[in-house]
Amino acid sequence: MSEHIDATIYHNPRCSTSRNTLQLLRDKGIEPTIVKYLENPPTRAELAKMISDAGLEVRQAIRAKETVFAELNLADATDDQLLDAMVANPILIERPLVVTDLGVRLARPLQNILEILPADDAK
């Protein structure tokens, strides 16, 4: 049995990568707190901290292919403008973000979250 670890997934049930990430966590014996971020978006400060803690640039954490990205003319936006847009339009937040006691990762690719989970051989 793996050691207990607190985990939170910023989840969109309509996203296959998000569903697969949730299943991977459960397969590892972790029942995460599920935040449906489209209904309960993080605050700007929470989002900025997660992005920073994941080692990402703000632009790496935004869904540039979403229609609203183009509608808001975000191609040349500053990090502050991108964060504001993501909080106002949570569909722009790249998913899923996973937060554990060991760090934060964007599960793209899915294997990224293995870096913030206890090792399988932990006893």
Rank of each mutant, 00 (worst) to 15 (best):
33 T>K: 06
58 V>I: 09
14 R>Y: 12
61 A>D: 04
24 L>A: 11
93 I>S: 03
79 D>V: 12
18 S>L: 08
115 E>P: 12
12 N>P: 03
105 R>A: 13
27 D>Y: 04
40 N>P: 09
36 K>Q: 13
99 V>T: 13
105 R>L: 06
35 V>Y: 01
85 A>P: 01
6 D>C: 08
96 P>F: 01
76 D>T: 12
1 M>Q: 06
42 P>S: 05
24 L>V: 06
33 T>R: 07
37 Y>S: 08
94 E>K: 13
38 L>H: 04
47 L>P: 04
49 K>L: 15
27 D>G: 07
108 R>C: 14
36 K>I: 04
90 P>Q: 09
60 Q>W: 07
25 L>R: 00
23 Q>K: 11
122 A>Y: 02
29 G>R: 08
109 P>M: 10
33 T>L: 08
72 L>P: 07
103 G>I: 14
59 R>D: 07
81 Q>E: 15
49 K>A: 15
81 Q>D: 11
104 V>G: 07
107 A>G: 11
91 I>K: 13
34 I>T: 12
101 D>N: 14
102 L>D: 09
52 S>Y: 06
95 R>K: 11
78 T>H: 10
52 S>M: 05
89 N>H: 14
81 Q>Y: 03
107 A>D: 10
7 A>C: 09
80 D>G: 10
31 E>Y: 06
123 K>M: 13
113 I>E: 02
91 I>N: 03
11 H>R: 00
56 L>K: 02
58 V>H: 07
101 D>A: 15
39 E>L: 14
57 E>G: 10
11 H>G: 05
78 T>F: 04
28 K>Y: 00
94 E>H: 05
92 L>W: 12
78 T>V: 13
117 L>R: 03
106 L>F: 02
116 I>C: 05
51 I>P: 01
16 S>H: 08
67 T>S: 14
44 R>W: 00
99 V>L: 13
45 A>W: 00
66 E>D: 12
108 R>T: 12
29 G>V: 14
51 I>L: 09
85 A>Y: 09
15 C>G: 12
97 L>F: 15
14 R>I: 08
117 L>I: 09
120 D>R: 11
53 D>A: 14
9 I>L: 03
121 D>K: 10
101 D>C: 06
25 L>N: 02
82 L>D: 04
10 Y>F: 15
35 V>T: 06
54 A>M: 01
71 E>Y: 03
107 A>I: 03
120 D>W: 11
11 H>M: 10
108 R>D: 08
110 L>G: 01
114 L>A: 09
81 Q>T: 08
47 L>S: 08
55 G>C: 08
79 D>H: 06
96 P>Q: 10
74 L>G: 05
106 L>P: 01
122 A>M: 14
